[in-house]
Design a protein around this nucleic acid. Sequence first.
DNA 1: CTGAAAGCGCTTACAG
DNA 2: CTGAAAGCGCTTACAG
Lengths: 336, 336
Amino acid sequence: MARAAGVSPTTVSHALNGKGVVRRETVERIERIAAEIGYRPSAIARGLQNSRLGLLALVIRPFHSLDTFLPEGVDYFLRIAGAASLSAMERGYSMMLIDDPTRPGVPFSALAADAYIVTEPFENDPVLTMLSEQRIPFVTVGADPARRDLFPSIDEAAGQQAMTMIDHLSQAGAHRIALVTGTDRNDWNLGSRQALVDWCEARGQQPLVLALPEAEGEQVGERVIDHFFSGDPAERPDAVFCLTGRHAAGVTEAAIRRGIRVPEDLLVAAGSGAMQNRTSSPTVTTLDLRPEETAQLAVEVAVALAEGRPVQEPLATPTARLDIRESTTRAPGRAR
Amino acid sequence: MARAAGVSPTTVSHALNGKGVVRRETVERIERIAAEIGYRPSAIARGLQNSRLGLLALVIRPFHSLDTFLPEGVDYFLRIAGAASLSAMERGYSMMLIDDPTRPGVPFSALAADAYIVTEPFENDPVLTMLSEQRIPFVTVGADPARRDLFPSIDEAAGQQAMTMIDHLSQAGAHRIALVTGTDRNDWNLGSRQALVDWCEARGQQPLVLALPEAEGEQVGERVIDHFFSGDPAERPDAVFCLTGRHAAGVTEAAIRRGIRVPEDLLVAAGSGAMQNRTSSPTVTTLDLRPEETAQLAVEVAVALAEGRPVQEPLATPTARLDIRESTTRAPGRAR
DNA sequence: CTGAAAGCGCTTACAG
DNA sequence: CTGAAAGCGCTTACAG
């Protein structure tokens, strides 16, 4: 480019960036020639100056166990990703969706972001360890359960969200609530579990909790029913609260297959919604986690960190919205 | 790092990349120290060598007129983005979701991808012009209607997909099919329109076509009905084929509000599905464009281009799957 | 107003 | 086996 315009690289740089002092005509000539030959400064070379590319990365940790962003009917991750990409754009950043940046052989780019957003980190998550060791800015959505106040994080208040549902089930007539969590050791699973345990303790009940792999989706239905309904009839739950929508869908189906009526004999609810919960019969009550708002907040924080600006803590995700559906709505007078 | 290990940068580079010849012990020492101080080579500096970052970019052009990746109930774009990100990872690339890289003030990173995927480019799309001028590799999903064979593209066969639906409507009893396209001048809208025009011509009919903004979604319902049902009764369609699921949802609602029964008096179908088409009453027949497979193919091509490998043309998106629902299913004997 | 020099943090011939 | 030099494509003091 410098050669084409017959000037030095310095002048090209000055002219195109409006820095320094360059004669008007020179600027115009350089701009014209740049347009002609389709010259654009290399983003990489520019990034090298201040080690900033204007790039954010989103690491969706549950992907690790789920192996997809698109579990059938589950749009949570995609909604996070879409909203985060949008928010990033609005702030002049690009957003990159990556898997695990600690894996050997990741592309250069996976380590080149100015700041990272890590959703649902695991206990002692190696991704956070790496990021913090390298002093790369990051914010998590849901804390690392083992390092709660060590890193900037957006609190999910998993326990509080769980209580919203537990209260609802209780009001809907449940006396004995069983909880089905996933197996990932993240704040969502652990925090929700703790909330139920505390709640049961306060009422002198033994908590009924089962952890099953998120990835198994609807398939876990039979196992959940077997687990809670094969023992002492006095110990059977009258409500099952599954953290994932697909688990709840599977439980609902399995219950009905076994002749357990939903909601008459058993209330079922999910801590996060899947499409099938809106279309199944009965439809299933869920929590809408409002991932779009969470993503927006996360991007806001990530950008601040990338630019070295201070972040106002504490940060929290929006309160989940309770979508009450048939699975927890007993017709008055028809309750068992 | 070099200083910390008491060796030259060259040796560090050799040791960490397994290139050149370095004594075993030296390699080990360097690796140990690197681990200790959390040293990782800068992705940007490495990228500068071969101007490759291992970064792909996805430019979803309809975003321009839609202003969101998440129109209520429409998961098409997100499914493309999610699947593309996944496929990229599998091939050792990161995927970046960006808006319009030609806009002034875009982040450096938006111009730093090794190859671009542009979905649904517009006629004479400036994004393609810029990319081709700068000799940045790219592939489009759906051709630029004005430069059909100029750039590598994955053919959507919009006309063929439209014919699938037109044939279905015809078999379901339609004699007069109206088409509602979007207003973006892309291959999808233009190709589908052409297919209907040809089909009508072959049957000596005047084509009934209306283009309305994609972004208006369900709102267009009334306008579509007004447009096609206010004139000469002999000229009224007995089927409306909307390219977008939200348009179809709006048309179905509006028709019913006006006392036009669906499917008895009017068949309605959509060229791409939205959630509401599966849950409305009646449910609406749609085409499933299988965005995941399209995304996977696009990434495959983009990676090949980024690595300078030849691409096997012609390329085509998978054949859409027809999801037949109530809006085009007349009970036998009950048809008008 | 313009350009030669140094530097961003690495890698790659090449010389020792 | 190791390191000094050059270079990737820019930008930023600084000198002229």
